[in-house]
Amino acid sequence: MAKAPKVARAHPLAGRQFAGNGVTLAPVDIASRVSLRAEAGALADIGKLLGFALPTRPKTSAAKGRRTALWLGPDEWLITDATNQRLAATLAKAEPAGCSVVDIAHRNTAIEVSGPNAAAALNAGCPQDLRAAAFAVGAASRTVLAKAEIVLLRTGEDAFRVECWRSFADYVWTYLVDAAKSA
């Protein structure tokens, strides 16, 4: 059998940074990511493996340590683990209970958007209401940023995490830099 080639995992936004106009952009480090689809009957098992209960209300997230679960739909979650542990392998133990665990660590990347004008910069391309009353700290949602689909998580009053597909990263980054310049 042929030996599998070793592939180095490069960050699609390595070395980029931007700060100005009250907006700071920073590539988020490589992390574990899982796309989870689960039936109601599997949620308890997944919660045990995860270490906390999955959020079940729309536009919410739950977190413990550096692990975060984002509600995307009635049976769909995005789970990230910044310590880059083998999250998919851990959660796959719940599959017999009625769920599907797909490792998307290499599909997504993320950008942290922070600063007093962070929401304004995002709203240049994201049509959601990002005022604190509508999108509080911890709120999470799949949405759009201009022509790209993103998942948005509010990590603080003035801080957001933008998850996007790796192949969209250059577009999303460039768009946010332009938006920040005119924020």
């Binding site: 729309p58 995307l72 949405t143």
Partner: peptide
């Protein structure tokens, strides 16, 4: 009509 929240919950 049918609609899909394609860039939201997907439903």
């Amino acid at each position: 009509e049918r609609w899909r929240h394609i860039h939201g919950c997907g439903r």
